[in-house]
């Protein structure tokens, strides 16, 4: 599965780099190096896929996939979603608010059911990191709505 994705990645690289100036080795254009890399990657993943198929065909052995613990893909998606939302609203809402909301959301996704504990923990985290990064280290984090 991974091999196929990488093969496609290599093919895309080749296609995109052909559109760039290639030049000669004396005066290499922008596209020469990525073009070589794309071809190399396609070759490598090609070998990998062929070998994989050959092995499969030879022994009918199943792919030695790493242990699949029955878990929740949804949980990962929710988690990812919360992080992406936080990133999108990072500038608008400002750092103190985003850090608080993100903590609340992530804790909830990981099964923190007591709201009082969740919110107070998130509040403490947001305040501590605000003082640490903004007040003490003087990092210009976005101020956002609260103007902090």
């Amino acid at each position: 599965m991974g091999g196929i994705v990488i093969f496609i990645f290599g093919a895309i690289t080749v296609l995109l780099s052909i559109r760039m100036p290639i030049g000669t080795f004396r005066m290499a254009g922008a596209g020469l190096f990525p073009l070589c890399l794309g071809i190399l990657l396609m070759a490598l993943s090609g070998i990998f896929l062929l070998r994989f198929l050959f092995k499969k065909w030879q022994s009918e052995k199943k792919e030695g996939s790493p242990s699949e613990i029955p878990g929740s893909v949804m949980q990962v998606l929710f988690f990812m979603g919360a992080m992406i939302l936080a990133t999108l609203f990072f500038k608008i809402l400002g750092y103190p608010l985003v850090s608080f909301l993100l903590m609340v959301a992530l804790l909830r996704i990981l099964g923190m059911k007591q709201w009082t504990f969740n919110i107070s923990l998130s509040l403490i985290t947001a305040i501590v990191s605000y003082f640490l990064f903004v007040q003490w280290l003087k990092i210009p984090l976005p101020k956002g709505w609260l103007g902090l």
């Binding site: 403490i124 501590v128 003082f131 640490l132 007040q135 003490w136 003087k138």
Partner: peptide, 16 residues
């Protein structure tokens, strides 16, 4: 740990 961190923060590097 949080408390320890907040103690470290008190050391002034910038004039507040």
């Amino acid at each position: 740990i949080l408390f320890a961190l907040s103690l470290i923060m008190v050391i002034p590097i910038h004039a507040a």
